[in-house]
Design a protein around this nucleic acid. Structure first.
Length: 835
DNA sequence: TGATCCCGCCAACGT
DNA sequence: ACGTTGGCGGGATCA
């Protein structure tokens, strides 16, 4: 049968992850095949035939491929099984053979991980379904999750474009950001806590729960997160009523990205995704359905090797879970920068604020509410807006764009630019005052910070970025090292800032790494970004979940785990104590020690105050206003409410909002010297430009300091020295051999109306445009002082690494349901076992 | 058994 | 009206 042959080819491809498997011809090839088959005049007929003996074929194929790797093994197993029952063979392809995971492998095998622009990577669902001998329905399942990762995008009915992993990094970054905004971390904690309480059947103090759920749930609604380049196209083609799978898939991924041990149990995921768990009417059936769906998603994510199945063992028993095995997701440079700009940092601040909203909540409870109420659409809007903003920002600076005068799109830009510039100016002025104030504060709070360190205020504000910025563990830069501190400090001064003082205990929370916290006498120590590295270790090892402990109480109390617990008002805490105590004492102590070592410094003091720039929060809102017109309308209203000082000052029209958002824009026309080869780098540069503009290169810490810091953070091995050029540094950290082909697949960007896109980059690559910077790309970027600065900032900012999770602790005001030291999650012992 | 999750009905949409 | 998508959950398999 001819069809088999086709499938055979795909199987061979199955072998594994080889990125470049036949990048070129997949689509055409597929097409060819059908004609080859004499027996099937019609596709339908063919389908039928294939259906008749799919298992047989697959078997044959597998045998042929027996030399292949893991896949083969499975196949063999299947075969063996079947062998035992000869007669049955035909009847049972065995469920596994039909599994979505396997199907997905086949599907993925057909397309290169990094398709070149040249080839037309179109996917015809019908063809694929046919070739893979599956019903179209199944293909939808796969495509939907791929779409959620922007690995494919729908061009038209029955037609998709294959992007492979080009956009993956960017997508993940975006998802992570959104996840943080949604306070998924806190939600997870909540759920765990609840479970815990449930176990003990403790006094049903629903009050807290109610409050908590209240806070956490609201945003559970979220729309499909789009990438800058792709959304429009897709939107034009199909209605965006996207519901489940796509969105669910994204949310699921977010959970991994914001979790510190990057392990998510199905149960927790399902609850969060359902979102209504608050009501406690855990609809059994609904829950069950959710789980089912999650399995579907997990299967394809597994095929993509982004996650893998594991089991977490708790007192309760073994629970299915998945562990993130995908790339570490670092905040994009751009984002980081923005964040930096947006937020003012105090070195010691260990607190992390997940979202601006959170900030706003804390600061202004009353107002906050509004912001919280973000409608699902809002989030989306914000996202898209942000994206737009980025584009715009990058545009001016991006060399390519400049060079390409030919762009028609550019024409639009100028006017916008002008507006933005004007606005930004305005902002700057306002901010500058505040900046001064900030400086003052900083100076007071941290002796270390030298006046020079304080950069001038930057115009650009990055709303979203804020959250992450706060996340930074102050510990990274020990206060004692005054020289260093300046670096750490974000130079941004967004206008009004508020100082929040955290208790040491809270500081703990901040730490990405929860387990260690409690014991640490010195908050700073905890702060140390121990980050994600741990996660690896954690595997198979017992890990505690729900590490975040938030305590409002006096810091001293929190010094030790025991003490801390004692402090806790809740009865639960006691119980928790019992359970967790032993554990804490054991492993935690170890960790602490190690931490201490690394930290060495010991600022005994914990001035953990951090300044939160309100304006930025506002900006967030502003952003929303910014992008899509339609959305803009909606957004603008809400945002207005945000009420940041700045916002107030400025009329809130949508257009204005836009301007506000883009402040960075004018900033510096960077003279970016980009190496010709690295077009992709351009975006990066632009980012750096923005940030760096304020920053003096002089401020940069000595390389030795940098090295020291990095080493302590575990970002680089002790022996390693970071080259002067930070950019290069990056490589070790994130570099994965994903070679970034600068080539961009030329997704039909043209379609995008976005004039702002300056992306006239010759290669049009999505990644390039959007600044999805891959490690390799970064490398290619010529060193610039500014860039250096940026990189450094990134490092410092993300001591926690990809895993850095903003802890929930932030809300001291309790506005947020979760906040209030009340959120205490008992540590539980988790055993993660791989399957 | 509980964990997985295939299968395909059928509704919501698009054309 | 018909074809495409894809939510959904019964119930078969797997471990």
């Amino acid at each position: 049968k001819t069809p088999l042959k086709q499938s055979a080819t795909s199987h061979s491809v199955l072998t594994e992850i080889q990125p470049d498997c036949q990048p070129l011809t997949t689509p055409p090839k597929l097409k060819e095949i059908p004609p080859a088959d004499p027996w099937t005049p019609t596709s339908n007929l063919k389908m039928l035939i294939s259906a008749a003996s799919p298992e047989i074929r697959s078997r044959e194929q597998r045998r042929g491929l027996s030399n292949n790797t893991s896949e083969v093994l499975q196949a063999k197993h299947c075969l063996q099984e079947q062998l035992s029952g000869d007669e049955y063979e035909k009847s049972q392809p065995s469920r596994k053979e039909k599994s979505l995971g396997l199907l997905c492998h086949k599907f993925l095998a057909r397309y290169p991980n990094y398709p070149s622009t040249a080839e037309n990577n179109y996917i015809c669902l019908d063809e694929v379904a046919e070739e893979l001998n599956v019903e179209r329905r199944r293909i939808y399942d796969i495509v939907n999750v791929l779409e959620s990762l922007h690995m494919v995008s729908r061009l038209a009915k029955n037609r998709y474009a294959w992007h492979g992993r080009h956009n993956l990094t960017k997508t993940l970054q975006t998802l992570k950001k959104v996840g943080e905004e949604n306070k998924y971390t806190q939600q997870i904690q909540m759920i765990k806590k609840r479970e815990y309480e449930h176990e003990f059947d403790i006094d049903g103090e629903r009050n807290e729960e109610m409050a908590r759920s209240f806070g956490s749930n609201e945003h559970s609604e979220m729309c499909f997160v789009e990438l800058p380049g792709m959304e429009f196209r897709a939107a034009s083609v199909n209605s965006r009523k996207d519901k489940s799978l796509r969105v669910m898939s994204q949310k699921f991924v977010m959970l991994f990205l914001v979790s510190t041990p990057q392990i998510v149990s199905l149960e927790v995921a399902a609850k969060i995704l359902i979102g209504e768990d608050q009501l406690e009417d855990l609809d059994k059936s609904k829950f069950k359905t959710k789980i089912r769906r999650l399995y579907d998603i997990a299967n394809v994510l597994s095929s993509l090797e982004l996650i893998k199945k594991v089991h977490v063992t708790e007192e309760r028993g073994r629970k299915p879970a998945f562990k993130w095995t995908g790339p570490e997701v670092l905040p994009s440079i751009r984002d980081t920068k923005l964040e930096a700009t947006a937020t003012t940092w105090v070195p010691h601040i260990s607190e992390s604020i997940t979202s601006k909203e959170q900030c706003s909540k804390n600061l202004f409870p009353s107002r906050v509410k509004q912001s919280f109420t973000r409608h699902p659409s809002l989030i989306k809007l914000v996202k898209s807006i942000e994206n737009d903003r980025r584009k715009i920002q990058s545009a001016p600076t991006s060399p390519v764009k400049i060079s390409t005068s030919s762009d028609q799109n550019l024409s639009a830009v100028p006017s916008d630019m002008a507006q933005l510039a004007a606005i930004s100016k305005h902002q700057l002025e306002g901010q500058s005052k505040k900046a001064k104030e900030m400086k003052m504060k900083l100076a007071l709070e941290c002796n270390q910070s030298s006046p020079e360190a304080v950069p001038k205020p930057e115009p650009r504000t990055a709303p979203l970025a804020q959250k992450s910025a706060l996340t930074q563990p102050l510990g990274v830069l020990p206060p004692s090292h005054s020289s260093v501190s300046p670096i750490m400090l974000p130079h941004t001064h967004s206008g009004v800032s508020y100082a929040i003082y955290l208790h040491p205990s809270q500081a703990h929370t901040v730490t990405t790494y929860s387990p260690s916290f409690m014991l640490q006498p010195l908050p700073c120590a905890n702060v140390t970004g121990i980050k994600s590295m741990n996660s690896k270790v954690l595997n198979k090892i017992t890990t505690e979940e729900g590490n975040n402990h938030i305590a409002k109480e006096d810091p001293r109390k929190s010094l030790t785990a025991n003490e801390k617990q004692t402090v806790k008002p809740e009865s639960t805490s006691q119980k928790c104590l019992k359970r967790s105590q032993a554990l804490q004492e054991n492993s935690l102590i170890k960790r602490c020690r190690s931490d201490d070592k690394s930290l060495d410094t010991s600022p005994t003091f914990f001035p953990s105050g951090y300044l939160i720039p309100l304006p930025q929060c506002t900006h967030h809102g502003n952003k929303a206003g910014f992008s899509n017109k339609e959305k803009a309308g909606i957004c603008s209203l809400q945002h207005t409410t945000y009420s940041s000082p700045i916002a107030d000052e400025i009329p809130v029209t949508a257009s204005e909002l836009k301007a506000v958002n883009i402040p960075a824009f004018h900033i510096t026309p960077l003279n970016i010297m980009v190496s010709p080869t690295s077009i992709a780098a351009a975006p990066v540069l632009s980012n750096s430009c923005l940030n760096s503009s304020n920053t003096n290169s002089a401020q940069n810490p000595s390389s030795s300091v940098l090295n020291f810091t990095l080493q302590h953070l575990g970002l680089i091995p002790t022996g390693v020295q970071v080259p002067t050029n930070p950019v290069l540094q990056h490589t070790p950290v994130s570099s994965k051999p994903e070679n970034v082909s600068h080539s961009s697949e030329n997704m039909n960007l043209k379609e995008e109306k976005v004039s702002k896109n300056i992306l006239q980059l010759p290669d049009h690559e999505l990644s390039g445009k959007y600044s999805a910077v891959t490690p390799s790309q970064q490398l290619s970027v010529p060193k610039e002082p500014q860039e250096l600065q940026t990189v450094k900032e990134n490092f410092f900012r993300t001591p926690g690494g990809p895993n850095t999770v903003s802890s929930s602790s932030g809300n001291s005001d309790g506005t947020d349901g979760i906040s209030q030291g009340t959120l205490y999650i008992p540590q539980r012992k988790l055993e993660v076992s791989e399957d």
